[in-house]
Every structure is written in structure tokens, then in C-alpha cells.
Design a protein around this nucleic acid. Sequence first.
RNA 1: AGUCUCGUAGCUCAGUUGGUUAGAGCACUACACUGAUAAUGUAGGGGUCGGCGGUUCAAGUCCGCCUGAGACUACCA
Length: 858
Amino acid sequence: MPMEYAQNDKVLPYRIIKETKGRDLVGMEYQQLLPWIKPLESAFRVIAGDFVTTDDGTGIVHIAPTFGADDDKVAKQSGIPPLILIDKEGKRQPMVDRTGKFYTMDVLDNDFVEKHINKELYSQFEGKYVKNAFNSKLTEKDMSLDVEIALALKLEGKAFKIEKHTHNYPHCWRTDKPILYYPMDSWFIRTTAIKDRMIELNKTINWKPESTGTGRFGNWLENLVDWNLSRSRYWGTPLPIWRTEDGKEEICISSVAMLSKEIDKSIEKGFMKENKYASKDYLDFDLHRPYIDDVVLASPKGEKMMRETDLIDVWFDSGAMPYAQVHYPFSCSEEELKKTFPADFIAEGVDQTRGWFFTLHAISTLVFDSVAFKNVVSNGLVLDKNGNKMSKRLGNGVNPFDVIEKYGADATRWYMISNSQPWENLKFDIEGVDEVRRKLFGTLYNTYSFFALYANIDSFAYNEKEIPYKERPEIDRWILSELNSLIKSIDESYNEYEPTRAARAISSFVDECLSNWYVRLCRRRFWKGEYTEDKISAYQTLYTCLETLSQLMSPIAPFFAERLFLDLNNISSLRKDKDNKPIESVHYTDFPTSNDSLIDKGLEERMFLAQKVSSMVLSLRKKNNLRVRQPLQKILIPAPNQEFISQIEKVEQLILSEVNVKTIEFLSPENNVLVKKAKANFKTLGPKFGSKMKAIANSLDGLSQERIADIEKEGKIILDINNEEIELLLSDVEIVTQDIPGWVVQNDGNITIALDTTITESLLKEAIARELVNRIQNIRKDQLFEVTDFIRVEIEYNALLEEVIQEYSEYIKGETLTKELSLRRVGVSAIIGQQRFEPILKVDIIEGIELAINISKV
RNA sequence: AGUCUCGUAGCUCAGUUGGUUAGAGCACUACACUGAUAAUGUAGGGGUCGGCGGUUCAAGUCCGCCUGAGACUACCA
């Protein structure tokens, strides 16, 4: 590049003469760039600082110790003086005054101006605002001081390159104007003196999540600095400190009573005329600044003491909450205070690290050498459904009142608590609230309605004595076992401040255990037959489940829980208060405790098996187009051992009725009908054989039926892996049934089932009987008959149907509350002729057979 | 910049001390069920577990780097 340069050239020519490390430049001196003001001592020297990046430029930057904490710190370390002006009062000032403009020379000390200011240069800049926003006469369009200075440097040939930078300098939240940092005098609390104790005490606090306590808050304590307590504001809580003008005498006021006493002294000295603070009525005086500033006190030496005008950081008020709320130490003794202090539990946003969490902890450590809270949940933010912060500006905010209005407080709260743990950010999606309403509350409401429907019919009010647990059927014992397991886990979850886990456990119990298994399987017990022990057992069991659920969910869904509980209890009066009246609220009841003697893990396991087997059979039916109303003869299950057989046998009836099959048969392991497959058990083989794993797994994959049978018989097998004999035990191998030739088969994990799909004539007839029941039930429902109404049924004659009815007449009548069931050997037209056949219904009984049917109340 | 959290199906989330086909619910599609019916069952599609590299016989899981989102603190020369 040519080194010629004309004044108006855009690019300054340059030449690289040497490359060097920044540290080699330290100590170099340079000429002052803007020599308006001469510093009090030599200042223009390169120093080292660790807070400057080399992302842009050379890594050499100017510092301004009077306007930045980091700059001030590094300057002090290296002995660089700040650029200081001396005003007419002799006070040291930064270059910019409190209105945001350069000091004018006329307010500065004459001697200082003469000795330190280059009047010719500075006169062009004195009085200028450093930001246009500070000057009401300027707009953003006017040239800013930054640009003015840059141009001046350019003209002097001192600027190598000028770029526009947008700073994210802090701005005033109200006026949006840029903010300048100033060094200010402040009052501090020397929290560094109790730093170690604060760290120690913090370790005893249960933080949710733990990482906030150890990480964010813990680190913050490790790097603790003194607490800057004072703020310069117009109105607020005053620092209770009065000082003499020379600062040599000072007093800290600890109560209104003390203040009043001191004012009296001051009146004696003639500093004050009256004492408003002698009144017992707080409405007679105001403790806040600026009113309190009128108070002048007298020092022991008899001098005037004025109040320090600074206020106390409002965070102090938050941190003082535990004492302030009970007005300790004035209206509350220490003993009384200790009833509520330290707090068992607090919750606030995770952004409160330096705010509430810190000030609570600092003050309690200082005052009582204690924690202020034993448990804390630092909750995350509620974001919009796309994970963006909600803001008015973006219009992505959700109005909580609208949501509560539409879905209710319970559904909203349940959604928020169950969806993600409180300390994680929540992506709030209104669809999710609706899902909770349908899934949990809808299901639970349905379950309750089902219970209430039949309980009312039978006038069940929990008046009978409790049916002993052992006399209740297996299914009742099962749901009670699950219920007590649930109580246990819920209690643990709440205790550990894991409400999300609790909510999810309740939700899955309601859906999977109670609604979709217990109630589904027990439906008949509620509506069929007389008011027997079995029926009472069913009512009592379901009642207990519903009542317990209302208690378990009450912390998260207080309103729904309350309604559910009261609807139950107002009828049964099972829970009474001490006056022997029905207790008024679920929230007054004791939280349930689990009865471990009712928990039967074996029972829970075999019920799980029953569900799994049923599901597999239904799947097989589906694949083979066999509707559930078609009874089938047999399920075949290969059983690995006797224990498996006895587990299944105990739930056999449940499975059979659920899937509408007549019998279950077991195949013993020795049976050679089964086609089996061996798989490697990586967990046991891994540690033993390491790198040979792959070869072993492959070898097991291709094992013949005979060799698999050998392992089962011998308990071990020797494999040849790359000419090496390797012995495996039965436990190293998983053997599963793959197929049963000639049957339709379903595999799931280590369970295999097969289904006999043969439909005999007798099974077909039974199917038709069931279809008939189904059609009659539908018609009953269509015609809005009550579930208790008895009916008369007439069906158009059909030969096949006649046989079915002969055989299943009692069954059909029982299922449908039919008093008379008859076939009429008449044509449709003839039926129409009869008055009673209105309206006419033609119904598909089985495929291809459509018959007229008529149903009427008896 | 430092500290911390999070990133798994279209969406919301599980995922044990690393163990071989990564799950659930919702949504979608199809079929069934129908005296709980704004419910239910079965089946189906849908995943390079944010990316790259490493440790290991084996990584969603452990380690390093990067990246995206968020919070706090400092700074923004």
C-alpha cells in the first residue's frame, strides 16, 4: 500500500513492522489522545487486565476508572490515577456531572483550571452532553458526542479506523435513556465477615433442584462481596443513621421508642421543636424518607446530627420478612418467633439468587446464626408454548385468569405441576390444560359418576360394617394394594418436594389401575344381582379408592378434591370431626398413611401379568378378526416354571372373562412343540468375556433347537468361539418362545401366548346370544329406558335364533332385565298390523341376518 | 466472559449402577368396543436421543469440544 495520505482519504495507510504479545507492551507509555485535561499524576501507560478479549482489534483498550468498577480495580492495581476534576468546593469529581454533561470550567476550581486544563481544546467540549438523550434539545438525528470526538481524532490523523458500535449499555427501565456509572459513597454490611458461616449453613438447606444450591447459590456465596445496602432514592425505608457534620459522632436508631427519646434530647438542645414520634399511633408520623429527614438529633457532645440521606436497599425488606411479618422484636418474643422461624419451605423464581434467597440467608445468619428456610424450591419460568419468554410486546402472553375461567384453577395447576418439575422452565400450552381436564379429571369424574349411579340405586352409604380384607375378592385386594403403594410413593414424593412425581403417580393410578382395569373388570359387580357381600365389598373398595384419591390430590387440586370428598362423605359420614359431625372439608382430614399389610407385591405382579396376557389375547383377536363377543375355547401359555403357573392360575378367571375365552392351558418347558430362541444376556456375559461378546451373541443367535434344549436340561453349554471353548450357564442365556406351530402366537418379552381360534357350533351359538344381548342393550339405551326398567322382548322368528334362545334364554333375560323373551313366527307386515310393534326396528343380529325386534317396558 | 440448567417422536415428558428392538401420554390413521360413552381397546406411521470426537466388548446414559435456548453475576473497552 502506498504510504501517501491525503487528509480526506477514507483509508489510512499502514505497514506491519512487528508482531508482539500483549504482555510485551505492558509498561509502555503513550501520549494522551485527548489532552484536554492533565491528570494529577502520570497516567498514560499500558497495563494488564484479564477482562479484555481479543475477539476484535488489538486487545488494547482505554479504561475509565471513574466510570467502571473493573476499570477502577485494574487501575488501582497498577497505580494509574483516575481522571479527576476539582470543583469550586474542592471536591473531586469525574469529568461528567450528574446531568450527563462535561463540567464547565466556571464551576471548577480556578487553580485546577489554570494548571490542569488545556482551555483552548476543552472549551470546544465543555458543557456538552455525553449522550443526546440527556439533552432535551437534541434528538437521535443530531450528531452525537461520540461522532464529534471521532471526527476530531480523524482530522488530527489520530484515528486509524472508525466504526459504529451499538452498546448494550444499561438503560433506564422507565425513560429508556442510557445510564452512566458513577463512583458513589455507599453503606455496606460486611457480609464477608460471615462468609464461611453462610456457606456452612447453606449446606444444611434442601435445595430443589440441588444444583441451584450447590452451583449457582453456592458459587455466589464463595465469591461473596460486602452487601451494598444503601440506595439514593427520594422515598423509602431510611438508613437509621444520624451523624454529625464532621462524621465523628454517629448514632444508629433501633426503634421508634429510641428515636423518640433522642428527639426529646434534641428538643432540649433546641434543635427540634416538637416530637411527633412520641405518639403510639403510627398514623401520626411517617418513618419514611423524606419525612424522617426533618429529624435532627443531638450528639453526646451536643452537636447537631443529620440523617444519612441514603435509603436501605428494598431487598433488605424482603430478607427481613421472617421478623417483620411478626413484628419481632417488638410484638413478638424470640420464643414466639421460633415457632415460624426458620421457615420449613419457601418457593420463588430461580432469578432470586441475589435477591430474596440471599437476603433471607444473610440476615438470618447475621442475626440468629441460623438458616431462614429449611427447604427451598427455586421455580423456573413460565414460557410460551414455543419456549419463548412471554411478553406484552410480543403478545405471546397467556392471561392466567382467562385460563382459570375456562378450565378451572385445578386443571391449570395440575397441568403446571404434572407437566414438568417446578424448577424447570414450563412451556405453557393451553392444549395441555385441556388434556389434563379430559384425561385426569374427566376419567376420575366418570369413575365417580359410575360409582354414584349404582350406589344410589342400592342406597349404599357405607353403613355396613367393613368387609374384612381377607374376605374381599382378589381384584379388590389388588386395587387396595396398589392404592396403598400409591399412598406410600405419594407421601415420599411430597416429603421430598417432588410434586411432579406425585401428580404423575396419581394420574397413572386413576387411569391405568382404577378406571381401565378395576372399574372395567368390576362393572358387573356393581349393577348385577342382589345386594350381596361381594357387591358391598366392591362399593367399599371403590369408595376407599375415591376418598383416598381426594385426599392425595388435595394439595394440587384442592377444589376438585373437596367436591369429590364432600360428595362421598356427606352421604356416608365416614369422617367425623370431634363433635361427631361429618367433617367439613377434605383439607381438615389427616393425610392418608399407607397400610403396609395391605400391600401385596406378588398380587400386583400377577395382576400385571393378567393385564399383559389379556392385552396379548386381544391383540391376537384383532389380528385374526375375532371380535371379543365371540367366545373362544382355549389359551395356551408356555410356562417356564411352576411359580409362573400358580401366578397365572390366581388371575385366570379375570383373564378369561376379560378376553372371553373358556380355559387356559400351560405348556411345560420340556414340551418339544415350542420353537425357541436363545439370546445372550449381555449384563452377565459382558464382565466375563469382554471383547468376545459379539462372537458369543452371534453364536447363540444361530443355536439349534436341540442345543437350546440341552442348555435347559444341563444348565450350561459349551460354545466354540474362534476355536476356544467357552462355557455359558443358563443364567447367561435368555430363552424365549418364538413360535408354536399350528397356533396363532403372540410374543412380548418373555411371555408367549397362543390362541385356539376354532369356532365350534356351540361357541357360535353363545356368540349369537351375546350379540343379541348387545342389540337389546343398545335398544334399551336408544329408547332412554332406566337401567332398572324391566322389559319385554319380541323378535322376528329365525331358526338359528330359536336354538340359541332355547339354550341361552336365562342368560339373555338376566343380562337385559327381560321378563318375557319370545320369537314371533310372523312376517314383518303382520307385525306392523299389531299395535304394539311401534316403532319397527330391523337389526343385524349376526352377519347377514336382519330381523325385526321390538322392546317395551313391562 | 464466568457459573448453572436444559436440548430424546409433530407436542409434553420418562429413561434405573452403561447391557443390545429407546418408552409413555397427546395428536394423526385404521379397526373394534359401547349399561363409565366428551370414556375405552387393538394395530399403524412417526427418532442420525442437538452436533463432533473419545473411553468401553457395549454409550441416550461416562469424558472433552462445539452448538442452540434460558437464568444469574460481571463487563461491554
